[in-house]
Structures are given as structure tokens and as C-alpha cells.
């Protein structure tokens, strides 16, 4: 297999197809996508709306399995894993940041951040300590017991960043993380991701259609109609 040659390949998509079936109609959202993502990279996936960015994200994040082809995460073929193993792998390796934040509305910021640690069966005290530290590091030390509805969009997205970091994952996946934010809050979130990449060595994969934000990334993957049209690296 190709990925063996370079050991720092974290994610590998091999001729991946994703075909959605809507009754009689088949929608090919991804058509033979192959790409390798290295450990410690900051990748931006760009493309027009409907080009298949989210579909690709879902496959990378093990939230879905391909119709054809294979997705390897840390050399494991995810379509060969059972639901339980997949969930554990996801919990340990990947942190998600969504456009709509996707926080649990009935829980405080603190509880939202603790939740993934509970799925990982962390010790209570350790989980609480970790959640507190991370919330402080994203600048929400004074808002820990606020519910999502009591926070601004930018603050909610920071809670969601904190949640994605809780399990100390290698990979952070962000699907249009600034899509719902104004430009100031958007840049704030982006610089936060940038710092995670630079200072903590996280692998960051971000979907965006804002080319200005894509400039923060190291590698840019362009999608069009479910196919990769260009992969460029920014080495300044």
C-alpha cells in the first residue's frame, strides 16, 4: 500500500467514491478522490457549494463510510471497523468543529467540554481539570457555567473548539468553522486554529469557501464536482 512508504501519513483516501441515493436518482458527491494528508499539516479544502467538501469531511472524520474505495486513518481501513471501534477511534483521534457549533443546548460550556471525556471514560476529577484548563485557554474561564444560548456565536465556537481539544486528538476537523460568524470572530477562530497547528502540532483539516481564510493553511485542496482539481502548498 502506498501509505507505507511515508510513515507520517495520517490519513489516506484511496479512489474514494460517495454516491447518495435519493429514491431513483443517484448523486455522486465524490468521484474517485485520492489524497494523503500528513501528520502535522494544516489543510484547507475549498470549492463551491455542493462540490463535495462536507462529504469528504465526513469520510475523513469516520462519520460515514465510502461507497467505493477506502479511507485509512492511521493505517486502519475504517470501513473494516465495527461501529463501536469506530466511535472509540473517532473519540480518541479526531476533534470536530462544526459550522453551527453543535453544542448540546441543555448543557453548560463546561459540561459540553467534559462530555467527550466521559465517552472516553476519563476519571471525573481529571476530566474536570482538563475541561477547565482548556476553557481558560480559549478565553472562556469566566463563562464556564453559561449555557450555549447565553453565549455569543464566537464564544460558542470557542466552546466547540475547546470540546474538540478535550480528548487531546491528533486531528482537528473543522467544517466551515467561521461560516456563521462575523469577520472579526471568524479571524479570531482562525488564528486560534493556526496557533493549535503551530504551537501544539495538531493536524488541522478545515473546509471553507472563503479564500482569505484558506491562506492560513499550509496545504489547499480544491474540489469541483466531487473531484480534486488542484492541490497546492504554501511554503512561505
Amino acid at each position: 500500500m502506498a501509505l507505507k512508504k511515508e510513515n507520517n501519513v495520517l490519513l489516506h483516501l484511496e479512489n474514494v467514491w460517495k454516491i447518495y441515493r435519493m429514491g431513483e436518482v443517484e448523486v455522486p458527491a465524490l468521484q474517485g478522490v485520492s489524497v494523503e494528508i500528513k501528520k502535522g499539516d494544516f489543510v484547507a479544502i475549498i470549492g463551491a457549494s455542493g462540490s463535495g467538501k462536507s462529504t469528504m469531511m465526513n469520510l475523513i472524520g469516520c462519520l460515514d463510510i465510502p461507497s467505493r474505495g477506502s479511507v485509512y486513518l492511521k493505517s486502519q481501513d475504517i470501513s473494516k471497523l465495527g461501529e463501536s471501534d469506530l466511535a472509540s477511534l473517532r473519540g480518541k483521534t479526531i476533534g470536530f468543529i462544526f459550522q453551527q457549533y453543535n453544542l448540546i443546548p441543555s448543557m453548560s460550556a463546561f459540561e459540553n467540554v467534559v462530555l467527550p471525556l466521559e465517552f472516553l471514560e476519563y476519571d471525573d476529577r481529571e476530566a474536570a481539570k482538563r475541561a477547565r484548563e482548556i476553557l481558560i485557554s480559549v478565553g472562556l474561564g469566566d463563562k464556564m457555567h453559561h449555557r450555549p444560548a447565553q453565549l455569543s456565536g464566537g464564544q460558542q465556537q470557542r466552546v466547540s473548539i475547546a470540546r474538540s481539544l478535550a480528548g487531546d486528538p491528533e486531528i482537528i476537523l473543522a467544517d466551515e468553522p467561521t461560516g456563521a460568524l462575523d469577520s472579526v470572530a471568524g479571524i479570531e477562530v482562525l488564528s486560534m486554529l493556526h496557533r493549535l497547528w503551530k504551537e501544539q502540532g495538531k493536524t488541522i483539516i478545515m473546509v471553507t469557501h472563503n479564500l482569505n481564510l484558506a491562506k492560513y493553511a499550509h496545504t489547499t485542496i480544491e474540489l469541483k464536482d466531487g473531484q480534486i482539481t488542484k492541490i497546492s502548498e504554501n511554503d512561505e
Binding site: G61, L63, E83, S84, A87, S88, R90, G91, K92, G95, F96, N102, L103, I104, L115, P116, F119, L120, R163, G167
Partner: peptide, 16 residues
């Protein structure tokens, strides 16, 4: 449903 999706994304297993 949405909450279930979120929980699964952040590591909940089926039996959880």
C-alpha cells in the same frame, strides 16, 4: 436526533 449525532461525533458508542 441532532444531539445523538453530536454525541456520536464526539465519541459516543451505540450502546452509550
Amino acid at each position: 436526533t441532532k444531539e445523538i449525532g453530536i454525541m456520536k461525533a464526539i465519541g459516543a458508542r451505540n450502546h452509550d
